[in-house]
Every structure is written in C-alpha cells, then in structure tokens.
C-alpha cells in the first residue's frame, strides 16, 4: 500500500512576487529550530529571487537574499544549505559564488569567483554541509564537487566531466548522509552517484527513461535518517523514493491541496474562485511541476520544492520499516 508509506500531509505556498509566497522555489531547508527556508529562483526579468523564512504552520517570517549583485544579494540562486551553527549558504550560478547568512538573514560574507582553479567556480549549483561543517559545492560546469571551509577556503575536490563512474554531466543537487557519504544528482547523466566522504566512488543507480528507477534529469537527492533516498525526478515531474541500495520503493507525483495561503486568496477573490471551479482541473492542480529539491525532518516530514507550482508539498512517513 504505497500511500501508507508516504501519505500526503500539507502544502505551503502561493505564487507571489514578494513577501508571503514563493516564485519558482528550487530548494528548501530547515534550520536547527525547525524553521523552513525556501529559495525562490524567479526569472531574469522579474527579479523576484529571495530566501523566505516560513514556519511549518505557514506563518511567513521574513525574506532576504533578494535580487542584486551587491553583498547580501543574489541573481540566479540555486541551492541552500545550513551548517551546525545555523549559517545559511546560498549558491549563485550567475555570480559564481556562495553567500553566507545567519538564520535571521543577516549577510555574513560571500566567497568564490569565476574560474576553474581550486576554489573558483563555474556555475555552482547544489550545496551540502558535512559533519565538520565543511561546505560541499557542486561546481557543475567544472564537473566537480569542491569541499570548502565555512569561510570559503579550498580543501579538496573530486570529479570530472563525462559519463563514467565519478564523472559528472551538468550535475545539480548534492547531499551528505548521516554516515558522511556524498550523494549527487548527476543531472544530464540521468543517475544518482554515491561517494565516500573522501570522494571515492561507491555506487550509482538510474538510467534515462520514465519507468521505475529511471530518470529524466534528476535535480535533487536527499537521504533521510533511515537511509531512504529521495530523488527529484525533475523532467518526469515526480519524486522517486529508493532504499539505500537504489531499489525502487515508491513514486510520488504530487497530491497538493490548496495551501492555507491559496485558500485565503480564493476566499477574498470570489471571481477567481468561480473561475477555478469552472475550470475544474483539480487533479491537475495536485501534481508536481518540476520538483527540484527534497528536505526531511526528524518528525517524519518530507518536503518537496514544487518549482513551477510555487509551493512546498509535504508528505509524512508513517509505518515505514527501518532499513538499516
């Protein structure tokens, strides 16, 4: 009974150019207090990029990292990661750098510049933080993962361009699991790769396609405390769940209900409500459209950044057997 493993829980979000709501959310992360941070990518013209802090009961708190090239601003932000000190890292593909904020959104510093030398980046995308608070950056056009200190000093890197083990093709999301292994969504190779903390190749799974265990440009990967592997199967508009060895467990296609914010919008805009009723596309409304990233918490919630529907869909994990 698949839905008993990952029943739908809730949805937070509404399309919004600023303030309460999101605009093309491509990443979502919790800080240590359980506050949710959502990264809106927006587009080049409207410039509604931002990081929004929101509680799990959908109370908007504040936003920061808005559009611009000055320190504390972003232009094409791609990913988020928190370290143990609740410093938030934000990668920017256009400025080729990583900005660092505290959990209140105060800008601390930024590091990185364009290039291919150690410590330089060419479109940094996915971010993760290891147990030593080192920051892993998917330096995707340089086809490598770079390990950096929290203040941006280069430590090491691994990876090269290609389709073999340990090689990357426009890779996107990365994750460090509780055992220290590094997982990468190898986007254009349509696969997930796993490495040791030192960057030694461990395993990989996935191939191009639409079946179980197949991907069309996986953008995000996340491993929960029980070893379940979640993959944002981006162009297939679904999230696939695997066991720790890459065995397919479940596929989620989106089950969103109207969020609290959407419901409030509908309630005060009866004309829009009538328009929606006439359209009657309620099943279509539920589905993911370019799910980009996944986050979980210790309460068993699974959050999915549903980029083209401007929301976070939340599932829960219940009755799930322990894998390890």
């Amino acid at each position: 009974m698949p839905l008993e493993k990952f029943p739908y829980h809730d949805t937070i979000g509404i399309a919004s150019f600023l303030g309460r709501g999101f605009m093309n959310p491509v990443d979502v992360r919790f800080d240590s207090t359980g506050l949710m941070f959502v990264l809106s990518r927006s587009n080049a013209s409207n410039k509604n990029v931002r990081v929004s802090a929101v509680t799990l009961d959908a109370e908007f708190q504040y936003e920061f990292a808005t559009w611009g090239t000055d320190p504390g601003k972003t232009t094409q932000p791609t990913a988020l990661a928190f370290d143990s000190q609740d410093r938030l890292y934000v990668s920017d593909e256009h400025m080729h750098n990583v900005s660092v904020f505290d959990r209140e959104g105060n800008f601390i510093e930024r590091w990185g510049e364009f290039g291919s030398q150690p410590g330089q980046f060419n479109r940094p995308s996915g971010l993760a933080v290891d147990s030593d608070d080192n920051v892993l950056v998917m330096d995707h056009l340089n086809a490598r993962i770079q390990k950096m200190t929290p203040d941006g000093r280069y430590i090491s890197s691994f990876g090269s361009a290609g389709g073999g083990p340990g090689e990357f093709n426009f890779a996107w999301g990365i994750f460090v699991d509780s055992g220290g292994d590094i997982w990468a969504a190898d986007w254009r190779n349509d696969r997930i790769q796993r490495f040791t903390a030192d960057g030694e190749f461990v395993s990989m799974f996935g191939s191009s396609g639409t079946g179980d265990g197949e991907f069309d440009r996986p953008s995000g990967v996340h491993v929960d405390e029980r070893g379940r592997v979640y993959v944002a199967d981006w162009r297939n508009d679904r999230v696939q769940v695997f066991d720790n060895d890459g065995g397919h467990v479940e596929t989620l296609v989106g089950d969103a209900t109207l969020s609290k914010w959407c419901q409030e919008f509908i309630d005060v805009n009866p004309e829009q409500a009538g328009w929606r009723e006439n359209a009657g596309l309620f099943e279509q409304e539920k589905r993911f459209w370019r799910p980009s990233a996944i986050e979980t918490n210790s309460d068993g919630l699974v959050l999915i950044a549903d980029a083209c529907r401007h929301r976070i869909q939340i599932y829960s994990k219940v009755n799930e057997p322990t894998l390890v």
Binding site: I14, A15, W261, C262, F265, I266, N269, Q272, W275, R276, N278, A279, G280, L281, E285, W289, C308, R309, H310, R311
Partner: peptide
C-alpha cells in the same frame, strides 16, 4: 477554461 494563474501559475 483554465484556472486563474494568480496562485498556482
């Protein structure tokens, strides 16, 4: 008829 774009795109 399609739903209005104002809240879900």
């Amino acid at each position: 008829v399609t739903p209005p774009p104002f809240f879900l795109g």
